[in-house]
Design a protein around this nucleic acid. Structure first.
Lengths: 359, 359
DNA sequence: GTGAGTTGCTGAAAGGTTTCAAGAAGATTG
DNA sequence: CAATCTTCTTGAAACCTTTCAGCAACTCAC
């Protein structure tokens, strides 16, 4: 990587303490300092209302002066409950998922919980590692957009007491709730739109096929063709290795390299990152969008509207997706009568210049 | 929010268990099942090489059949160490920070640690809450891009044993390492470029001024003017409430509303999100970029190059920033001779159409 | 066949918190 | 003033793991 070299590593400040030793005072020290018992300190922490204002003040003063920091491991070990939710994301670099995360955070905050974000980065091993870790941490629950929805790990968690809600994917194995958007319908909307504009040869850009969304959107595309009475070969599949801008550029290269006669006149991309990369590459190789190649993306991320050619895209209710998922998770972990649910939202096509041309 | 309503909440699968009780087997149960002692099970977990292959197999079989999941709280309480780093981000929705996070994950993975991402979302209260939480969790260390670099909390953590590295900001209080890019220089580069193109009245779009980067980049801008012998009033400050696309659009609205005579001919934005919003709004209001308004962004996120008008931007070594920060943190928590360092990288101007026009 | 060295396993203690039954002190009632 | 309630506080047990000194059994050399 030809990135900037450090300009200076100079002056820096290795002043104080070296490798700091943990020297935190515990409840015991606080109790001694305040002249009360352990139980009382714990009460100040957990049930302030049962302790008299005077003692409480003493204890709080002691905590402040000793710099007491509650040891959450010990708390959780004894109390058995965690105040943390985790959202294991498919790709933290994709604005779609960070918007979903915002919805999750919103719901968690309302319930007084905190959220840890984990990024599997479309890597099944990392996903598995994180699932193990989160289970060992005994988090209150896990939200996940899985790369591998059939992972045995995924199915095992709930039966061992860690609730799991699957986000942006519908799974019906009776073990978790799931919240999704109808991806088949989304694919259908996209292709129906392109067919209506008169396109015949259409590329589908997406991959890998282990990702459920990629498959569903493609199946929706096929369905649209079928409904329109077109042969399935009219959908040309361009498989990518990931759902990223860089892969989109690669696909653009491949597409633009085809002789004009054989080249599709439109491309439907499994997400907006691919679409933006494809768009960028095609434009820079001299193809006109949408005249030479119409492009439809998926997700309608914020950057889609600001692209070189504003992107037609299939919009999903991102924050709502996250919020709903978190609420289901909270219900599962607090409501003894919880029943697993599958919630499905409906996507919506947003038409912009990349298919329709200037108005 | 006029977002899609649930299409169906039907069929769902409330089949199995309701609110699952935690019924995890512990080391004790495993020991009993395998016919060995607690200590041996622990050895299998932590020092597999000291236990004979035969016993190890028995124990592992017992673990598998009981579905043993190690309780990390107990482990950490006793062993005293956590295998987790946290990166507390300023804005998880900003691709710049997710790229930094990638660098962090890379370095952590190489060291066998996991990363939890937290999003303060430019909210000082949330930042404070997360800092408390992470300290209580006794994470191995905290990486943070602070919204409030003078927070007392921030300074207290290291003295209590939680190493902190400040990312994308230089602080010299002798309490932490920090890794940053020279933002003053970055601002200077941007403005020098605009001056060279002949612009006289230049807007600086950014805010709030509690964020260090916003201030430094502005100061760099001022310095460039001074060096060129221009009066400081030539820099017109447009203060925003956050560094987001939406705020950028708002600023665009304000700019475009000015009479052409008083309107700046160029705008330098504190980050690319603002720049993209500004660009989008200005274009949609009929301004031509760069003819009516030249725009320079900051960060050079992946989407900058794919924008309606490819964006001139100040590039920072994002992943390197994260990787370096994580490495410093690891050094701090493992090397007894650790000395705090301030590492500064050098930014680089990437010129594109938004200032230079078509070539 | 004795003593020293290995190897593998054991059992109790420790880590910091929460919980809970029970006690102490003070207030209220008849 | 005894009896009953309240209001606060207490101390020990429990949560699940890791650690470590020590023990048993075996091997090896002389």
């Amino acid at each position: 990587m030809p990135d900037s070299a450090p300009e200076s590593l100079p002056s820096g400040g290795g002043k104080r303490r070296k490798a700091a030793k943990r020297h935190t005072a515990g409840v015991k020290a606080v109790a001694a300092a305040a002249g009360v018992s352990l139980g009382t300190v714990s009460n100040v922490l957990n049930r302030p209302e049962v302790v008299s204002p005077l003692t409480r003040a003493k204890v709080e003063a002691a905590m402040a002066s000793l710099g007491f920091v509650r040891n959450e491991s010990a708390r959780q070990l004894r109390a058995g409950s965690s105040r943390i939710l985790a959202y294991l994301m498919l790709d933290a670099g994709n604005p779609f998922f960070t918007d979903v995360a915002k919805g999750v955070e919103e719901a968690a905050q309302a319930a007084g919980l905190s959220v840890f974000l984990c990024n599997s980065n479309e890597d099944a091993d990392r996903e598995a590692d994180y699932l193990d870790l989160l289970e060992q941490q005994r988090v209150q629950g896990v939200l996940i957009t899985p790369i591998d929805q059939n992972s045995s790990r995924l199915r095992k968690l709930p039966s061992r007491g860690t609730p799991v809600v699957v986000v942006d994917r519908n799974i019906d194995d009776g073990e978790h709730c799931s919240v999704a958007v109808n991806d088949i319908l989304g694919g259908e909307l996209a292709i129906a739109h392109l067919l209506e504009l008169g396109h015949e040869r259409i590329a589908y850009v997406g991959g890998p096929n282990t990702i459920g969304q990629v498959v569903d959107r493609r199946d929706g595309a096929r369905r649209a063709l079928r409904k329109a009475g077109k042969p399935p070969e009219n959908l040309i599949e361009l498989t990518t290795g990931a759902l990223t801008v860089a892969e989109g550029r690669g696909a653009g290269q491949r597409l633009a390299g085809l002789p004009a006669a054989r080249r599709p006149t439109a491309a439907f991309c499994a997400n907006d990152l691919l679409a933006l990369g494809l768009l960028q590459q095609c434009v820079s190789l001299g193809l006109r969008v949408p005249e030479d190649l119409a492009i439809v993306g998926y997700d309608d991320i914020e950057f889609a509207a600001a692209a070189a050619v504003p992107l037609t895209s299939v919009r999903q209710p991102r924050q709502l997706l996250g919020r709903t998922a978190a609420e289901l998770l909270l219900d599962e972990s607090s409501n003894p009568d919880h029943e697993h649910q599958r919630v499905t939202f409906t996507p919506e096509l947003v038409v912009r210049t990349s298919t329709r041309g200037t108005l």
